[in-house]
Write a protein that binds this DNA or RNA. Structure first.
Lengths: 345, 345
DNA sequence: TGTTATTTTGTGTGCGCACACTATTTAATT
DNA sequence: AATTAAATAGTGTGCGCACACAAAATAACA
């Protein structure tokens, strides 16, 4: 391992000068700068991040603004845990992470939580931009404060976020369609069940639906139909609506739920339907995994939410610590889960 | 972050004494030891690994003994790259990795490569134990030298390896069977194609076959048959054997190749067969991925070979640096790859 | 009690880097 | 040529820890 000292000796200058060159701090004559740069390149020098971290004693406060999770919606637990894990891994590098949560159906709580967040004077922000208008307000504030921010899980365009970390939702829907086609007879009809509140909020859901529908464009044997339900958490009502619909539409051979709520549908289906209809949904929440194991659900597509959380902190930290600019889109693998491989995740 | 200095001040002793307690170096009276231990616990102290790494300037030489890769067999490139990547990530923590390769069909080259390896006096070894008898010789040598070793990718029992890093092969075969059943009519026959040299060498292949066969035990509509081919790399011969076999066995609706050579089979099939027979194989080598994309192969099961390499170094390093004993089996996820999600891996 | 052995504790240095501060060289100005 | 301003280069300290070494305190012994 070559050190700054070595370079300095070889260049016949002091360590301080080499340091200035490495960090583009200026105040070095062009001649010596060139010479040192050549040497750095020649020796393939890179700073020892250990020593660097120790010397800097950085203190970056990274704030995360994410939806809260509860027993009804466990999805957001995984990114949160990923964030915590990465925070723990990087704490000795001077990365401190604080999480702020909001109700994902309530823009006011989003704004309020952000107000609390911004008071802590964070150096950077990870956010799940659930509400477009409010996000515009927030980001303009961040931009004037020159606080970098990145989007986690929800990808909305027209912002100056340094990156998006999440999944290619359209492609996710596409894959769901392929798996659906694979597990059902030809021809078949498929039912897409959507919660009302998802229609405006969260464009991941609509992208998944597009991907799902588009997959069948080239094949007329497969048709899709959509069922919108006001409040999926109201089980008696949901049960009623779905089973009624299926009675009227015996042609339905598969149900696609483009959110993490497939387990609700699975638990609402009458047993006849449950046996004869293929269910495909998203996200490896505990409830959904149970459905895989008891075979009520055939496939889950995981967007690796834990990894999303972990990577968002990792990528933001690399940006802060090493000024590494990330790719604009950081897509995680689209993981196909079945009963047999779910245990290894 | 509480430091040794802080603890020392609070305990009214010098930093050296605290250091001795932390590392159980001895030479501390019982009274002060107790007092310091209490304080450490109370403050939930843990050493700053950054500072520790810098001060220690550790130098562990980890040697890897893995099969060589070439254009015919690219599988082993991925673990190698994973090893390199992790080595790079950890080089500032004093981990130096050297790779030694051998011909995976030649025990003599295995032994020879190990001889070269052991001359470099490594602190620990990552090995792919392709040959059981030779591995016994090697490991007994390692044990007398007290050099820790772990097994990568190939899991053989009865050794004192600190861990196995790889895939649950039986389960992998199981999943292949499920996917095969899903993509073929009921009833169907499936053909398992196996290279002769795999039969003795590599029990991953036989475990996959068991998993594949066992999946159909409960269902009499599906039958499997096996075709053993001397040398898969001899394309004209392979082409001949396979197509002849399929002509005689029109009941075959799916071909399962329990190794990374599915691309060879795909390229050998006559076009009629290629269109009507589902192919499922293992490993995301470039050639195999090409087959996914051109739709000659339906599914690949990845054993995440890159991650296997990466994790093996990571786990061994944690063992060396922090004395963290790993789980005996470190199974990687069984990843299902299709045309649509292969790009994100 | 004095001397030596043994146990226990304290001190100093360096790991490689970042940065504030000081010193030197060069350029600009009178 | 003398003085001042600006550009360039060098020095010193600390980050938190590990460990060799020195010092002090205690125990063992004559």
């Amino acid at each position: 391992m070559i050190t700054i000292k070595d370079i300095a000796k070889e260049a016949g200058v002091s360590e301080g000068t080499v340091d200035r060159v490495i960090h583009n701090r200026g105040g070095v004559s062009k001649k010596t700068e060139q010479r040192i740069k050549q040497l750095l390149k020649y020796h393939n020098f890179s700073v020892n991040p250990i020593a660097s971290a120790l010397a800097l004693k950085n203190n970056y406060n990274v704030a995360a603004l994410i939806p809260e999770h509860n027993d009804f919606d466990l999805f957001w637990k995984a990114p949160y845990l990923g964030i915590l894990k990465c925070a723990d891994d990087l704490k000795t590098f001077g990365i401190n992470v604080k999480s702020f949560t909001y109700n994902q159906y309530n823009p006011a709580s989003y704004k309020k939580s952000f107000k609390n967040l911004i008071r802590t004077k964070p150096s950077a922000i990870i956010m799940v931009p659930n509400f477009t208008i409010e996000t515009a307000e927030i980001t303009s504030q961040l931009e004037s404060l020159k606080i970098p921010y990145l989007f986690l899980n929800i990808d909305i365009e027209g912002f100056k976020n340094i990156a998006f970390i999440g999944q290619d939702s359209y492609r996710g829907g596409h894959i769901a369609a392929k798996l659906m086609q694979l597990s059902t007879p030809n021809p078949s009809h498929f039912l897409i069940i959507q919660a009302q509140h998802n229609i405006t909020n969260n464009n991941a859901v609509s992208k998944r639906i597009s991907g799902f529908n588009d997959y069948f464009l080239k094949n007329n044997n497969y048709k899709t139909q959509t069922l919108k339900i006001e409040n999926l958490n109201n089980l008696t009502e949901t049960r009623n609506i779905i089973n009624k619909h299926l009675e009227r539409h015996p042609e339905v051979k598969g149900i696609f739920v483009p959110s993490s709520r497939i387990h609700i549908v699975a638990n609402c289906l009458n047993s006849v339907f449950l046996k004869n209809i293929e269910l495909i949904g998203f996200d490896n929440t505990p409830q959904n995994i149970d459905c895989l194991i008891n075979e009520s659900v055939s496939f889950l597509i995981s967007q690796k939410p834990f990894d999303q959380g972990y990577d968002s902190i990792r990528i933001m930290s690399q940006f802060l610590l090493k000024n590494e600019k990330p790719n604009n889109k950081h897509y995680l693998p689209i993981e196909i889960l079945i009963k047999e491989n779910v245990a290894y995740n």
